[in-house]
């Protein structure tokens, strides 16, 4: 029996973001609106630099927006000029990984509970140990991140996020730097973790196949300035098996939005703009 989350509804209403690196006004996001239900796995697909990371950063609280509103469970968390502080209710897993290189795996995972004062150091470590074991990661607690493979590092980072019981999990192209084989296995891992906790997930990627494999809903974003161009509902049941990648239904879903995604990719390629960090 997979649990269904009661919290974690995100409402993005008419959000635009202008920013100003080196004095050039850039419209990164243009009037986006999305409603994400609690426990939904929502994926945004688009070429690099299209503004999807900007949206994620706004939800996470790293910067504000220029117009519109983002709310979490009815409470506004981001309005023009004001943004809620980043917090453990909206945990982020970063693109190139952000495990603290100077801490062991165990200390990394236990970090959240310890600094929030939610548990003593030993309790947090026990909890971390247990979670690692549940996720199939026992035995690496004493290692440092640079001793692990990228796949394992990403898994540890997901564990570090989950231990804080967030309302929303924000993943910023977490598997981007991996080779295709590792990526596939890491995706399966993420799905298993998702099935356990059924949190709301906001996942961004440039990989269309990844989007369809993982998401309940896939949104296609245009190149800069980013707008939501098309939405696709993915109806595979859960838990999902890697074999669905070769199913006819999968291919048909893919062909539905492939043209839209490709168009944006070509536009981005020809524009040749340097991707904003």
């Amino acid at each position: 029996m997979t649990p269904v989350a009661a919290t974690g509804a995100i409402n993005i209403r008419n959000v635009s973001k202008i920013y100003d690196p080196d004095g050039a006004n850039v419209l990164a996001v243009d009037n986006c609106s999305v409603d994400i239900a609690p426990g939904e796995f929502c994926v945004i697909v688009g070429p690099s630099g299209c503004g999807k990371t900007t949206l994620l950063n706004a939800i996470a609280g790293f910067h504000d927006i220029s117009s519109g509103e983002i709310s979490l469970d009815g409470k506004p968390i981001c309005t023009p000029g004001i943004s809620a502080e980043p917090g453990a209710d909206r945990m982020v897993v970063f693109q190139n990984g952000a495990l603290f290189p100077w801490s062991t795996v165990l200390n990394n995972v236990a970090y959240g509970p310890v600094v929030q004062g939610a548990a003593t150091s030993t309790d947090a470590k026990t909890k971390a140990q247990a979670l690692l074991a549940e996720l199939g990661l026992s035995g690496i607690g004493d290692r440092y991140p640079n001793e692990l493979s990228s796949g394992m590092r990403r898994r540890v980072e997901i564990a570090r996020a989950l231990i804080n019981d967030p309302k929303v999990l924000l993943l910023d192209e977490p598997f981007r730097a991996m080779d295709a084989l590792t990526k596939g296995v890491a995706q399966e891992f993420l799905l298993q973790a998702y099935d356990r906790v059924r949190k709301t997930v906001f996942f961004i990627t440039h990989d269309l196949e990844e989007a369809i494999f993982l998401g309940d809903r896939v949104l296609v974003m245009t190149t800069r300035p980013g707008r939501i161009k098309q939405t696709l509902h993915v109806d595979f049941g859960r838990p999902r098996n890697y074999k669905i990648r070769s199913s006819r239904q999968y291919l048909s879903l893919k062909s539905q939005i492939f043209e839209a995604v490709r168009e944006e990719a070509v536009r981005a390629f020809e524009a040749g703009e340097r991707e904003l960090a």
Partner: peptide, 26 residues
């Protein structure tokens, strides 16, 4: 890297945590 500060904030760190657990070791 800015990303470590962001991760720390996400995880609920207070300033003294950021100082001793990110700034100093980093």
């Amino acid at each position: 890297d800015e990303v470590y500060f962001r991760a720390a904030r996400c995880l609920g760190s207070k300033p003294r945590h950021v100082f001793f657990r990110v700034v100093l070791p980093g």
